[in-house]
Structure formats: C-alpha cells, structure tokens
C-alpha cells in the first residue's frame, strides 16, 4: 500500500497527490511514469511522474478527473493509501544538449511539461513555456511555470485571461519573431501535440512529445500501448513514453485512444450517480 501524504486541488478537475513510494522515488527521472490501481476491481492506469523527492521518498502525480478510475482515486484523501503503485516505468527524457527550448503544455499536460521545463531551465537552457487552457479558471501551476522559464505565454481557448488562442498560435508567433528554438517539447492532448508537430515540421524544429496511451502492465507484455513511429510499431511503455513527435502516426493514436471511450463514459456516469446517491443518503 502506498500512503497519500498530500492532496491538493489544482482546479475543478485536477488534483495533485504526493505519494510515499521510496523505492520508486530513488530511481525516478523526468519523463517516466507509474501505473496505479485504486482497488481490487479497478483498472491499472498510467500517470506520468510530475515530481519526486529522493530524500522524502515521495512521488508526485497530477491527474485530471476524466473517468471512473480517476473519480475513484479522487475519493482518497491524505492518510489513505493507493493499493498498487508501480514504477518508475518507461525511459527517462533525454533533453541534454539543447540551448533554446519551447516547452508546451496543454491542460493537464502542463503538469508534465512543467518539470521538463524546470530541468531544461536548471541546465542553463533558454526556456519559453507556452501553456494552453480552455478557460482562465482552469489555469494551474502558473507561479511554478513562471519560475521555470524565461518567458511564460498563457493562452486560453476563450480568451478569458486576455490571451485568446491555441498554443500553436503563440508558438508560431514566437518562431516567426525569431525565437530560434532548437527544441520543442509538447505535452498535452493528442490533437494538440499533433497540431504542434505539424507546425514545427514546417520549420524543421526537433519536437519531443510524451505519449500516454491505454496500457495494462507497462513492461512490454500486453502491446496495448503500441503506436506507429516512423512506420514502425513501438510500445510506449518500453520504447517511450517520449517520441520524436514528427514521426508519430497521430491519427492512429487518436483512434486507439478512443477504443473504450463509450464504455468509459457510461461507467463514469454510473459511478457519479452512485456517489450522488450515497451523498444523499448520508
């Protein structure tokens, strides 16, 4: 069992948890992920490691409540424990040797983009963070991202923070203005990462993305997380989760990510009804 030491709401649908997992904390690197299971009947879901503290023996995860498993996870509080917590899985990110990077986060993806920016920035690279959210109220980690970058560009789909537009709009503007990026890191929804890669391809800028597909074991056994990269089949769990974004077949990845979306919607809905019912009876 893995005790939850800290739980913090970041916005309406996103939560940060600090989990005690000393062995994983000792080995974790940016870009790797864990797999967790909340209860005996539960699914195994992968979550990218948002932060870790080797001395304290903790691993930080940030999740967005999207389905039943994240709803279940969100029922747990400080002092409760997560049943299974496995990692660190996947390969660490390789961000060495870059001088001038744009780190792009979309929504919950900012939770993972932020530590990447921090690493690059600490290493002396010039870092622009471009973070996109649907609306102002959903903005997370603003202070942290500001501290980990030379310039922070916060974009909202609805313009509620005064900067209307997608992350690609800001990225394009910066590139055209001569930002001179030698690396783009993009982490967020698949459609966003695809749009970023389509743009950077035109300018010939190396772009690293982090995939978070459906998986079970996370060790290469099930093959459920496979994707096509440069025409070859790759497993996100052991060959990734970072890939050269311009090589990834996003259309396929998007279709595969929706394999169970109908069932997931139904299952989350039923669970929400049950929670409401329980709250009423309590």
């Amino acid at each position: 069992m893995f005790p939850i030491l800290k739980k913090r709401r970041l916005n309406d649908s996103m939560t940060l948890m600090v989990v005690r997992a000393p062995l994983i904390a000792r080995k974790a690197h940016a870009g790797q992920f864990i797999i967790l299971r909340v209860n005996e009947q539960g699914e195994r879901i992968p979550l990218t490691i948002a932060d870790y503290d080797r001395e304290q023996g903790t691993v930080t995860i940030i999740y967005q409540i999207v389905g039943k498993t994240t709803l279940l996870l969100d029922q747990l509080n400080e002092g409760d424990s997560i049943l299974d917590f496995v990692g660190p899985l996947g390969k660490p990110s390789h961000l060495e040797g870059y001088q001038n990077a744009a780190v792009i986060g979309g929504g919950a993806g900012c939770a993972i983009a932020y530590p990447q920016a921090k690493t690059l920035h600490a290493r002396g690279a010039k870092v622009d963070i471009i973070a996109g959210f649907r609306t102002k109220d959903l903005i997370i980690l603003e202070d942290e991202m500001r501290a980990a970058s030379d310039r922070l560009f916060l974009m909202t789909d609805d313009g509620s923070n005064g900067h209307k537009g997608f992350v690609t709009d800001a990225l394009k503007k910066n590139i055209e203005a001569g930002a001179g990026y030698d690396l783009v890191v993009a982490i967020g929804p698949l459609v966003m990462m695809r749009a970023v890669c389509n743009l950077t391809k035109k300018y010939g800028i190396k772009t690293i993305i982090s995939m978070n597909p459906i998986m079970i074991d996370g060790t290469g056994m099930c093959g459920g997380c496979r994707l096509t990269v440069g025409g070859k089949t790759r497993f996100a769990c052991v060959d990734g989760p970072d890939f050269d974004g311009q090589e990834v077949d996003f259309d396929e990845a998007i279709r595969r990510s929706r394999t169970y979306s109908e069932m997931e919607r139904k299952s989350a809905q039923e669970f929400k009804c049950r929670l409401l019912e329980e709250a009423k009876n309590a």
């Binding site: 079970i216 074991d217 056994m221 093959g223 459920g224 496979r226 279709r255």
Partner: peptide, 26 residues
C-alpha cells in the same frame, strides 16, 4: 517470454486488433 509479436501487416493499429497477451490479460 512476454513481448507479443505482431505480423507487421497493414491494419494492425486499427481499433479491435489485440495481441493475445492483451486480450487474455484483460
């Protein structure tokens, strides 16, 4: 021996194609 083989034919990335490992593990 836990690394599933695929045939490397077109269409293996379609929704509804499982490795036996994944199908049976689920």
């Amino acid at each position: 021996a836990g690394l599933p083989r695929f045939m490397n034919i077109p269409g293996e990335g379609l929704v509804g194609v499982y490795s036996a490992n994944e199908f049976l593990t689920r």
